[in-house]
Design a protein around this nucleic acid. Structure first.
Lengths: 202, 202
DNA sequence: TTGCACATAGACAGATCTGTCTGTTAGCGT
DNA sequence: ACGCTAACAGACAGATCTGTCTATGTGCAA
């Protein structure tokens, strides 16, 4: 087992991805050159290109990192709200509020990346995959909650979530996440009306 | 009166803005160089820089153009749906469906532009101004409709709209706009429950 | 000790991008 | 007929960006 190797490789690679995470998000992907990332992460150019044969490879790694982080925050917010799926569907919106409040918040990294890439490219595909994964997770939750139309409810909620993510950076007020959460609450309640049992129906 | 002058000036300027409109939207702002716009619009470089001293000036003109077009489409969809404000609040979502169906659709030009610019710059400010204007228009409509909480309703609806605009480009299915519209319908009905009169209440 | 895998340092090529500058051409009003 | 203004054509400077290449250093294992 090449523990030593991969550990050492990780050190440089990890620094690169970490730096890319900050810079790409804060300034945009095209606005940040590899030279800056190399300088900022204190890595040699050859090392950089050994780990990431092209800039796009790093961008993909960046998006994978964002996916890990954001998905974890969503799930954490959901479970923190309670055990019942219906409660979790609303609770996940707390992650939105937390994200928008963080300073340096600049919207959804995926939507931003999609804005800078063409459909059909690996980078753009990553965005689609992420949004699909979130939708499917919310859909499962809606099914477990016993919603009348789980797919439709999930779609509505993710629409609201994406809207909140997009608006949050254009609007200093904390109103957007709050309204999104309240709105989600109303939608979930409506979708569950008449089947208030904690366990899924039938 | 310099009618002649401004008419002539318009010809070149108009071609530039029109070209920028297509290219910036389709490929992203940073991805399109001024050289390409100059070539594509068949204009001399000196002429370009006479009308737009810097690329950013053109980007601002581009966003102003998008604002005109999109705002008109929203209002057209709203009035086409009917005269009652409550109906218009839902009807405006038809513009979303139409936009998403157009091919080459690549999300909201403003959100995309914001993704490529820094807060505090003229370009970014344009985005904020646009979103603020839409919110305020929807808010007026909600007030006229006699909604319980016009501001909150307007916020919810624009959240849904932005979410639809963002998701629409990541998701080939026409489901997002449809769900957004249905969801808007539910929200408007809920906000108006108990005051079904076409004229605002009290 | 010798070799190997990984890292550093930084010069370099080639493309591209923004913005400037020079010189020429065409239409319009006086 | 003349001059003004806008437009055209395109070379040029300077910066920046991606990606390659050479030369060197370092720690671990056999």
């Amino acid at each position: 087992m090449s523990t030593t190797t991969s550990t050492r490789a990780s050190a440089a690679r990890e620094r690169i991805v970490e730096t890319a995470f900050s810079l790409f998000y804060a300034r945009g992907i095209r606005a940040v050159g590899v030279d800056l990332i190399i300088a900022e992460s204190g890595v040699a150019k050859a090392t950089f290109y050994k780990h990431f044969p092209s800039k796009d490879d790093l961008v993909v790694a960046y998006l994978d990192r964002v996916d890990d982080v954001w998905t974890a925050q969503l799930k954490q917010a959901a479970t923190a709200a309670g055990d019942a799926p219906a409660v979790q569907l609303v609770g996940l919106f707390d992650a939105l509020g937390t994200a928008c409040r963080r300073d340096g918040y600049r919207g959804c990294a995926f939507i931003n990346a999609a804005a800078e890439s063409q459909p059909g490219t690996p980078v753009h595909d990553r965005t689609v995959a992420h949004k699909t994964a979130v939708l499917s997770w919310v859909s499962d939750l809606a099914t477990q909650a016993g919603a009348r139309d789980p797919g439709g409810l999930a779609r509505s909620l993710t629409l609201l979530l994406d809207g909140g993510l997009a608006s949050g950076s254009l609007d200093a007020s904390p109103e957007a996440p709050r309204v999104a959460r309240e709105c989600a609450d109303a939608l979930v309640s409506a979708a569950l009306a008449g089947r208030p049992s904690p366990a899924a129906g039938r």
